[in-house]
């Protein structure tokens, strides 16, 4: 949570820097632009994340490259798993049954491919119903 807050702070600064850099690149200015005033305005102890790091984090957070996987276990009932897939993943009966059987027979099933945020929410919800769910980032 705290990292999200600092990401937001850093994001607000980024466009301002971009405008200044763009101006500096297109029109020769009679003075040198110094980024120091921005740093001086930060409260003591605040750490500015590198711009690339922030953009990378935002990109990975909102790219639909995360798989949600449900794993087999010896206790959850088949009907119950179908019900959970329908309730949490909004699957229809046919898809929910198909994924349930995949979990049962193959040991796991990829039930969603979403952004990091959405996948995280789905894992939390599936786990709140007692299903063994994980999320994995797909290779770039």
């Amino acid at each position: 949570m705290s990292q999200v807050a600092s990401m937001r702070g850093a994001k607000r600064l980024t466009p301002i820097r971009r405008v200044i850099n763009a101006e500096a690149g297109s029109v020769p200015l009679p003075f040198a632009l110094d980024p120091l005033p921005f740093r001086a305005a930060e409260p003591p102890g605040t750490q500015t994340l590198p711009q690339i790091d922030v953009e990378e984090k935002l990109k990975t957070a909102f790219t639909r490259g995360w798989s949600v996987i449900v794993w087999n276990d010896p206790v959850n009932l088949m009907d119950y798993v179908v019900y959970v897939f329908k309730t949490v993943l909004k699957m229809n009966e046919k898809d929910a049954s198909k994924h349930m059987w995949e979990v049962h027979q193959k040991g796991k099933s990829m039930v969603a491919r979403e952004t990091r945020e959405k996948s995280e929410l789905l894992v939390h919800r599936l786990r709140s119903f007692g299903l063994n769910a994980t999320m994995e980032q797909e290779p770039a």
Partner: peptide
């Protein structure tokens, strides 16, 4: 749990 879920039939094996 099954009583609360009601009759369900899983298909598509």
């Amino acid at each position: 749990i099954l009583v609360m879920l009601g009759p369900q039939i899983y298909r598509g094996q």
